[in-house]
Amino acid sequence: MSLIGWPFLTLVVAVTVAAFVVAVVLWPAMSRRSAGNIAARIGTLTLVSGLVLITAATQLNAQFLFFADWSDLQGALNGTVTKTALSGGARAAEAAKGSASGAAAPLGPLVRSLPPGGRQDGDVITYSVKGPLSGIVGTVVVKLPPGYLDPGSATTRYPVLETFQGYPSTPRQWIQTMHLGDVMAQQVDAKRMRSALIVSPQVEVPPGVDTECVNGGQGSPQLETWLARDVPDWVARSFRVPADRSSWATIGLSTGGWCAAMVAMLHPAQYGAAIVMGGYFRPEFSPLYEPYAPGSALAARYNLVTLAVHHPPPVALWVETSHSDPVSYSSTRALLKAARAPIAVDAVVLQHAGHRIGLWKGLLPQSLSWLGTNLSGFRQTA
């Protein structure tokens, strides 16, 4: 019986309802004051409460696919996941080299101080940024690399890793929940990559709306422009970062994985690579949000599989998916099949895995090591 199918959910609900009915029927018989009756009441309440929690967990799992099947659940409990490495297109290091056509943030000054107006919490600073091209005013959370403000680092430029959270979430998801800064520090200590400036922009504009990071039609927010043009331009003006695209990359999970892939593939002059965890390669809009008409020019623009077939951009992608993840697997498989140079796709395909944070946390060191190996701007030098 499938862990996420309606028969299992129906069975769990039926057992829960039956337990509640039995508890109501037997409760008067357990009402007398005795040690046995008190223990029976406690046991009955515990059983019914536990079944209610299991019912809620089963429903949430069916909706969000935290665990795809029984093998996935067992693997999460014992810490074992079977995975396969697949590749398509060019080599990652080759895809991220050289130049690409399109707009990109120019080289900014060697600023020695932080931009004003930020709310600082240690090395994490929150800014409100207005995008002149998109017209969006949004939050951007920045995590400084270690030593950024030291006088000895005043002429050092740091690569940029732009993060995209899942939906619903906040710009701090990669810093607080995924602990990206801590994992990056471990990879730096192991000499697998350089320290980078972590930039986490707001993607839910307006708040609470799953815009899939795209530019909508007239009257809709221009999220792609905000994320891929306004935010990099602001970062280049405000922090000591390089201009070459081998020093800029994106990373995202779930919906944020789509966003990371989209901005990198549509803006290869700005980004050399993207890390995509449980993402997909065509937008998945909710029924309540339709930023453009099906069959429109924008609909064609955001089909990244078609882009990879006809106009493959020179970017490197590290992708995680699972045979059991209906959110990401079908479009990832299509992208792998379509990939040809100059795009490069390195995929980790899990045999039995769901769509959850715990899984992606375990793969974060591997993905950052891949970034440091294949992008010269993130590669640690002696």
Rank of each mutant, 00 (worst) to 15 (best):
V13H: 12
A18M: 09
W27M: 10
M30N: 13
A40W: 09
T44N: 14
L45T: 15
L47T: 14
L51P: 04
N61I: 03
D72S: 14
S87Y: 13
A92K: 05
E94G: 03
G102L: 01
A105R: 01
L107T: 13
G108F: 13
L114R: 05
P116Q: 10
V137D: 14
P145Q: 05
T155P: 02
F164Q: 13
W174K: 03
A185I: 00
D189Q: 15
K191F: 07
V199W: 01
Q202F: 03
P206E: 04
P207E: 01
V209R: 15
E212S: 14
G217F: 04
Q218M: 14
T225V: 13
W226T: 14
S238H: 02
F239P: 06
S246R: 10
W248R: 03
H267R: 14
Y271C: 00
A274T: 11
V276A: 06
Y289I: 12
A300P: 07
L304C: 11
L307T: 06
P313L: 12
A316V: 01
W318Y: 15
S324H: 01
D325P: 10
R340T: 15
V345Q: 10
V349N: 01
H352G: 03
G358Q: 05
K361Q: 14
T373Q: 11
R379Y: 00
Q380W: 05
